[in-house]
C-alpha cells in the first residue's frame, strides 16, 4: 500500500506541471479576457491587452500555450518586461526570408509604414496560410496598403475568379510576388523582375513566352499615366457603348411613346380600320 501511495503521489507530482501548462491560456485569460485591460505606452497612447479567446482557440496556434510565443514571462508578471514575440523560434526559414525583403527594410526605417509578421498574419487569430479562410482575406490584407494593386488585380481574370470565390487554381498576391522574400521589381532577384518574371509565369502557364510575361497584370484602365494602351482601349469601348445606346435608347423610347399614342387614337376612333396586330402566329 505504501509503495502504491508513493507511486501515485509521484505520478501526480510529475503530471502537475502538465496540468498547469494545460490550464495556462485560461490563467492568462482570467486577466487578458477583460476587454478593459490596457497598457499606457510611452508616447501617451494606450494599447489594449485584451485577447479574444475564440480567435485564439480557432487559430492555427490554438493548441500552443501563451508562453510559447510570449517568452520571458516571470512570476512577477505583469511587473516584468516580457520579450518581443519572435516568430523565428519556430518559423526560422520564413523569418530569414522576410529579413531580406523590402518590407523588412522599410519596417526598420518606419515600423508604421511596413508590415512585420503580425501585420499580415494577425496576432492571436493567425490562420494556416494555405487555408481557404486565410486565402479569402489575403488580397484584402495586401490591399490595405496596396489599394491600387488590389483594385487592378480584380480587373484581371485571376482576380475576378478569386472574387467569385474560387481560389483553387488561381494565383493570389504571394503566388507571383512570393510571400516573405518580397523584393522590388528593379531587383534582379525579385520574382517579378525582368529577368525572372517569365519563370514566375511558367510556374502555372507551362507554355508561356517572353511576350506573354510582358503583359502588365496590374494595368489600370482608368489611368492614362499607368497604362495608355489600357486607358485608350477602355475609352474607345465606352465610346462605342455610348454610340450604340445613344442611337437606340431614344429610338426605343420614341417608338414606345408613338405606339401608345397611336393605340389611344385607335381607341378614340374605332371606325378606322381595325389594327393589324395579330400578335404573330400563336
Amino acid at each position: 500500500m505504501k509503495i502504491r501511495g508513493i507511486f501515485y503521489s509521484s505520478l501526480l507530482t510529475l503530471l502537475l506541471p502538465l496540468a498547469v501548462w494545460a490550464q495556462e491560456p485560461a490563467d492568462c485569460l482570467s486577466c487578458h479576457g477583460d476587454k478593459e485591460l490596457k497598457k499606457d505606452l510611452a508616447d501617451g497612447k494606450t494599447q489594449t491587452l485584451f485577447v479574444e479567446q475564440k480567435d485564439y482557440l480557432q487559430s492555427v496556434h490554438g493548441n500552443l500555450s501563451c508562453t510559447s510565443c510570449h517568452t520571458g514571462i516571470t512570476a512577477s508578471h505583469p511587473q516584468d518586461q516580457p520579450g518581443k514575440v519572435d516568430c523565428g523560434i519556430c518559423h526560422a526559414q520564413e523569418t530569414e526570408a522576410y529579413k531580406k525583403s523590402i518590407h523588412a527594410q522599410a519596417f526598420e526605417a518606419d515600423p508604421s509604414a511596413s508590415p512585420d509578421c503580425l501585420r499580415c498574419h494577425g496576432t492571436h487569430q493567425v490562420q494556416k496560410s494555405g487555408s481557404e479562410k486565410y486565402k479569402k482575406t489575403a488580397v484584402d490584407q495586401c490591399g490595405e496598403c496596396h489599394a491600387d494593386y488590389r483594385r487592378t488585380y480584380f480587373d484581371t481574370y485571376h482576380g475576378k475568379v478569386v472574387s467569385l470565390g474560387e481560389t483553387k487554381d488561381m494565383p493570389l498576391c504571394w503566388d507571383c510576388h512570393s510571400a516573405h522574400e518580397i523584393l522590388p521589381m528593379a531587383d534582379p532577384q525579385s520574382n517579378i523582375s525582368k529577368e525572372r518574371v517569365l519563370a514566375t509565369c511558367l510556374y502555372c502557364h507551362p507554355d508561356a513566352n517572353t511576350k506573354f510575361a510582358q503583359y502588365n497584370v496590374h494595368s489600370d484602365k482608368y489611368s492614362y499615366k499607368n497604362d495608355p494602351i489600357s486607358f485608350w482601349t477602355y475609352f474607345v469601348m465606352v465610346l462605342i457603348v455610348f454610340f450604340a445606346f445613344g442611337l437606340w435608347v431614344p429610338h426605343t423610347i420614341l417608338w414606345f411613346i408613338r405606339d401608345w399614342l397611336e393605340n389611344r387614337k385607335k381607341k378614340k376612333n374605332p371606325e378606322t380600320k381595325p389594327p393589324a396586330e395579330s400578335g404573330g402566329g400563336a
Partner: peptide, 15 residues
C-alpha cells in the same frame, strides 16, 4: 502572345 505583344491580353480583357 507568340504573335501579339503582351498587352493584347489586357486589351482583350477590357474589350
Amino acid at each position: 502572345t507568340r504573335l501579339l505583344p503582351g498587352f493584347a491580353i489586357g486589351m482583350s480583357t477590357i474589350i
